[in-house]
Design a protein around this nucleic acid. Structure first.
Lengths: 233, 233
DNA sequence: GCAATAATGTACGGAACCGTCCGTAGTCGC
DNA sequence: GCGACTACGGACGGTTCCGTACATTATTGC
């Protein structure tokens, strides 16, 4: 079991990982799989090894917007880490992959026995807060183009290679904007040769150019992750 | 020392509160006081008894937008609770008041000795995540008018009486919009007799009307606070 | 009470984005 | 290989909100 592919598991002490390992189970993470449902008790906590997961805020009117994005750098179940068994958020797979999972009750017991394990998961929660804060700021102040560039960079950080299998519709939900708005913004980025966009696939061509477009929307949460976790995303 | 005025302290067990109490220090919280500076090591963790604090995401371009708001229902230092000594966020007093504070190092030691204290603070962190998520969603999808109504309701929940000493400029920073946009939105709310607005002061007149305007932007995080903390804001 | 400052009211053109719609082009299931 | 479906491209008027500017009205410091 390639636990070290997941950055959070890799940062665990040998002892903590040894305690957790027997309860980790390999699992496929297909596209659109729902890892956590808003308001529902969480069954498992997932550690992606590949693929991309995202956590959305949803409300009673069916509006939705992404608040956090992670892959092999993170884990689901932030509310379990914080001591409860459910949250208002929804977590789904954006780009398919595979990962490891552990039953919630088991993890709760392990965190109680192994405080340093809990402490490490809390550091990831803190990194996630940094990311969520930047999302809130970007949603308030930045253009679709900037936010899209940020999102593509964040995704690019978390997958192998430069290909991101994503539809405009999906990106629109992530950013909380119109699908047509995403189409236009992608065309602009493509016109600047920063990406290539084909049906269901965005290919990153010029990462530095994307950074220039994203400007202050990208970078700070990523640096905070490095500081907190002691290793890059 | 009126510790029970703060909802987090009030939710502590007698034993945990007894351990913490000797290290709590009364402190005035004047308007615009900075409780935490972005990127700087946190000196104290504050428990407001009155007044309103807010936490802002800031970036290198000087852009800023509120991500979280709390008063007697909460505490600063979420990053300390998560195991680090600083964060990218900035926390300032919006409406003056007074509160209690404890040195960071002392609190870190206490949380280590008294796990149930740490666990309770984590539940508040979880409530804050719910609030931040709603903020991110509202920033992406809701009009200034809706977001303003939400903000006024959240503030109203946390002060005594119906008077909120706030300037348009301040509200604009909170919402991440133009000052003139706030002025217009306040006029609309005032035209509907939901508030009265005079220089430096907003008075809530029709709370239910504000709820109707805020729609889905208000309510869910507040219900989650109740669930997590076992008491209303 | 008088200047200086802070807060508010108002306006303007323009940019960004929305809601909506429809046509076209890939892709999939059988 | 053909119909059904999904994804994308492009357009439309309309609204929201921006950046900016400037005047007016409280309040404060002296």
């Amino acid at each position: 079991m390639a636990t070290s592919q997941n950055r959070v598991l890799a940062a665990l002490s040998d002892e903590d990982l040894g305690a957790l390992r027997p309860f980790l189970e390999e699992v496929a993470l297909p596209h659109a799989m729902i890892l956590e449902r808003a308001g529902q008790v969480i069954e498992h906590v997932y550690f992606p090894l590949t693929g991309l997961a995202s956590t959305l805020a949803v409300n009673v009117n069916g509006e939705r917007s992404e608040v956090s994005l992670y892959g092999r750098d993170g884990m689901t179940g932030s509310s379990v880490i914080n001591g409860t068994d459910r949250s208002l958020l929804e977590t789904t797979m954006q780009i398919p992959g595979h990962g490891l999972r552990v039953e919630r009750g088991r993890l709760q017991g392990l965190m109680r026995e192994h405080r340093s394990m809990h402490d490490l998961f809390l550091l990831f929660n803190e990194a996630r807060v940094a990311q969520m804060s930047q999302t809130a700021l970007s949603n308030a102040r930045h253009s679709i183009e900037e936010r899209l560039a940020r999102w593509l960079l964040m995704s690019h950080d978390r997958v192998e290679g430069d290909e991101l299998p994503l539809t405009h519709e999906f990106l629109a939900i992530m950013l909380g904007v119109r699908r047509a708005g995403v189409t236009t913004a992608l065309h602009i980025l493509e016109g600047q040769h920063l990406i290539r966009s084909t049906r269901g696939l965005v290919t990153v061509r010029d990462r530095d150019g994307l950074k220039a477009t994203a400007d202050a929307a990208y970078g700070a949460p990523e640096a905070e992750y490095l500081r907190l976790m002691g290793r890059p995303i």
